[in-house]
């Protein structure tokens, strides 16, 4: 087993009185696709925002690639790429312009940003539409650009927050393939979703979150094996069993 690339320890975050994340700990190994599953409001996005140094935890720390998000946020930021749950793009600008801008924000030279931007657009199958304005794109295309932006700077660790929400099967497949390709090239990926079959297909290990806590964590196969024959049960059933509730309530 390769070494742990990310170690999250006892993360807490409250908004007003509400505990959004309540004592979350987990580890992600290098070159692993780690799934964070859970229903709406489980605390997945809040967890990612803490891991990506955007939100400061009330308690707990995270070590990424040997750096603490609390004390060495700057170093951490150089290692990570973030694909937020919502589109984080300037829709009035072109796809390429968006990638170039965020490339420059990550400190790249103009030349470097351009090379990477074109390569990433190609990766998500949008090289033909490089100059097109985002607000003229379909939902799936926008999602792919959102992912491409996260790849600027070749991060070692990629946070993907529900990257396939609300898109057509074609774009979804493109995103799956892109993610698998990235993993094969050595990227470590944290992936959140509430599509259990998606997690089943992509993730090496998953953690199921509910109410700000992790209620189960293992390989999809092991989790399913705990409640029956892995071939017949789904992660959906695992969730139901753990919480007594259906996932999409």
């Amino acid at each position: 087993m390769s070494a742990n690339y990310l170690v999250a320890q006892d993360l807490h975050k409250s908004f007003n009185e509400h505990k959004a994340v309540n004592g979350v700990s987990f580890t992600i190994r290098k070159r692993e696709i780690f799934g964070l599953l859970g229903p709406n409001g489980a605390g997945k996005t809040t967890t990612i925002r803490m891991l990506s140094t955007v939100l400061e935890p009330d308690q707990g720390d995270v070590i990424i690639g040997g750096y603490s998000i609390k004390r060495e946020a700057e170093e951490v930021r150089n290692l990570i790429g973030v694909c937020p749950q919502e589109l984080a793009l300037y829709v009035e600008l072109g796809a390429l312009d968006n990638l170039l801008f965020f490339g420059r924000m990550a400190g790249m030279s103009s030349q470097e940003a351009r090379e990477q931007a074109l390569a990433h657009l190609k990766l998500v199958g949008l090289e033909e539409r490089a100059k097109g304005r985002i607000d003229k794109f379909s939902g799936g295309m926008k999602r792919r650009v959102n992912l491409a932006v996260a790849l600027m700077g070749h991060p070692e660790l990629l946070f993907l927050d529900e990257p396939t929400v609300g898109i057509d099967p074609q774009s979804r497949n493109n995103i799956y393939e892109t993610i698998e390709g990235l993993r094969d090239k050595g990227m470590t990926i944290l992936y959140t979703t509430h599509y259990m079959e998606e997690a089943d297909r992509l993730c090496d290990r998953v953690a199921i979150m509910d109410g700000g806590q992790i209620i189960a964590m293992d390989t999809p196969h092991e989790l399913k094996a705990q409640i029956g024959s892995p071939d017949r049960v789904t992660l959906e059933d695992v969730f139901l069993k753990q919480t007594g509730r259906s996932l999409r309530d």
């Binding site: 990506s52 140094t53 955007v54 700057e74 973030v82 984080a88 965020f102």
Partner: peptide, 11 residues
């Protein structure tokens, strides 16, 4: 736009 988040995550 969530672009703020993106910028903050990239230093």
């Amino acid at each position: 736009n969530h672009t703020l988040e993106r910028m903050l995550a990239s230093s």
